[in-house]
Design a protein around this nucleic acid. Structure first.
Lengths: 213, 213
DNA sequence: GAGAATCTTAGACCGGGTATAAAATTTGGT
DNA sequence: ACCAAATTTTATACCCGGTCTAAGATTCTC
């Protein structure tokens, strides 16, 4: 997989070049105001070639999805034996945050990224679809582990809801104008509160096991 | 709101007529194979008029969404004071099931409905969007009640995930060929299991407070 | 270097969706 | 019952995303 031929290397380069050109146009003029024909021309390539690499226009902007999907899959698959999924996911999100990763949502750059996203319903819709794909992936992995199709689906959907909430909360605050540093500091608590609710449920809080109140 | 003029009554009739004609064409020939121009012609109306009533083609098929949204909102808003949201939602879904309502998902008709839905990515995508709108509505109502924006969002997303799981589980089974009566009998347990997980979380099961076996 | 396999291209084409301005219809007042 | 204003419907032209096709260019394999 390391030693690729010239053809494969050219393809990867072309793919990245097209996505970069497109993203540049999107951030300066907005998603809807840029046509695929324009992108093709600016990238020195034909319209068909653009669609060759990116089946939908939206994929030109949301091209990191596959990487993220695979990473989340690895988080679940490679967790220590016996560890609950939620625990692994919680740890992973704390790591993302500590590393200042864009997907933590608590970073200055999200402003530009998100404003383009928000400006186009098609783009938002595609992102929701991608979140849904994450849910499908999780459901598949969990079903493999436990054999219980229904529980897997349920837990996967709850997990996905938690993850998207964790991501969108800081993004929303930063777009709303909150101080990025402050958002970043708060984010660890956001992660923990979200996973606490996921693990313990939204029902009325139960008294501790050996009640002494 | 009861006594409408002639104009308003005609509009409602036209709207329903167009949706019915469209649905008829969709179920016999598939969503993608029917063009909006065809629908307009079959309904004896111009293409522009179709788009006047239904902004997107997908809305011609998923035209019950607004009703459902308002009903779910009423479930939350009109629940007895002090009752947890999850309790109200659980009760509502049991009622849907007992009434044999299509939105319970456990009814013979879903087969046709769902196969059309599945045949078109655009339709599926639109439905996911609608589920998302339910989440937004719930988040809004809960935020009004508690004032805690973040918790509201989180709970709303978890609730939405639960609801969609409850709906899709029987639909999936019926489409897969399971006996409808059996699915219907199982559905009450599905609802309870789902809400139990929502209320108590996916974490390791805590021992009951005063264990009595 | 030849031929097979693959990638790119031009160009025509389809269908969803919008814009515009004119024609038809309902409304309310008299 | 008629007229004028408001609203709805219509025809038409148009844009853009996306697909199809067949031919041309490039890379691979032997």
């Amino acid at each position: 997989m390391a030693e690729q031929g010239l053809r494969e290397r050219k393809k990867q380069a072309t793919r990245r070049m097209i996505a970069d050109v497109a993203t540049g146009l999107f951030v300066t003029r907005g998603f809807d105001a840029v046509t695929v024909a324009e992108i093709a021309e600016a990238a020195g390539v034909s319209k068909m070639t653009v669609f060759n690499y990116f089946p939908r226009k939206e994929d030109l902007y949301l091209d990191r999805h596959l990487d993220r999907l695979r990473e989340l899959e690895a988080v679940v698959r490679d967790r220590p034996a016996g560890e609950p999924v939620a625990t692994a996911m919680r740890r992973y999100h704390h790591e993302l945050l500590a590393a200042g990763h864009p997907l933590s949502g608590a970073i200055a750059g999200v402003h530009g990224f998100w404003s383009v996203l928000q400006s186009s319903p098609a783009l938002m819709s595609r992102m929701v679809e991608q979140e849904h794909e994450i849910g499908d992936m999780l459901a598949g992995v969990l079903a493999e582990e436990t054999g219980d199709e229904f529980s897997a689906r349920l837990v996967a959907n709850l997990l996905t809801a938690t993850i998207t909430t964790i991501f969108r909360t800081p993004v929303g605050r930063i777009v709303a104008g909150d101080d990025v540093e402050q958002v970043r500091r708060d984010q660890a608590a956001v992660i923990d509160r979200a996973f606490d609710v996921l693990e313990q449920g939204i029902g009325p809080r139960r008294e501790p096991l050996h009640s002494d109140g």
